[in-house]
Simulated assay, not measured.
Amino acid sequence: MTIPLDDADLTILRLFQEDSATPIRALAEAAELSVPSVQRRLRRLREAGVIEREIGVLAPAALGMAMTFVVLVELERERLDQLDAFRRRALRDPNVQQCYYITGEADFVLICLARDMAEFEALTQRLFFADENVRRFRTSVVLSRTKVGLSLPIGE
Results as ranks from 00 to 15, higher is better:
P4G: 13
L5M: 09
L5V: 05
L5W: 15
L5A: 14
D6L: 01
D6H: 09
D6F: 10
D7S: 15
D7K: 05
D7W: 14
A8L: 08
D9V: 10
I12R: 14
L13Y: 06
L15Y: 15
F16C: 08
F16A: 05
E18M: 05
D19K: 01
D19Y: 08
S20V: 04
S20T: 05
S20E: 07
A21M: 11
A21F: 08
T22N: 00
T22L: 13
T22H: 14
P23V: 07
I24L: 12
I24D: 04
R25V: 14
A26Y: 12
A26L: 14
E29W: 09
E29L: 02
E29K: 11
A31W: 10
A31C: 05
A31H: 12
E32F: 02
E32I: 12
E32W: 09
L33W: 11
L33M: 13
V35F: 13
P36R: 00
S37D: 09
V38S: 02
V38A: 05
Q39L: 06
Q39M: 07
R40L: 10
R41H: 03
R41N: 04
L42E: 00
R43K: 00
R43Y: 02
R43T: 06
L45E: 08
R46D: 02
R46I: 02
R46M: 14
R46C: 11
E47Q: 10
E47H: 01
E47A: 10
A48F: 04
G49P: 08
V50A: 08
V50R: 09
I51L: 01
I51W: 10
I51P: 00
E52S: 07
E52V: 12
R53W: 12
R53L: 04
R53S: 02
R53I: 03
E54P: 04
I55D: 13
I55M: 05
I55C: 10
I55Q: 07
A59E: 06
A59Y: 03
A59G: 07
P60W: 04
A61L: 11
A61C: 08
A62T: 06
L63C: 12
G64Y: 11
G64N: 05
G64C: 04
M65G: 14
M65A: 02
M65E: 06
M65C: 04
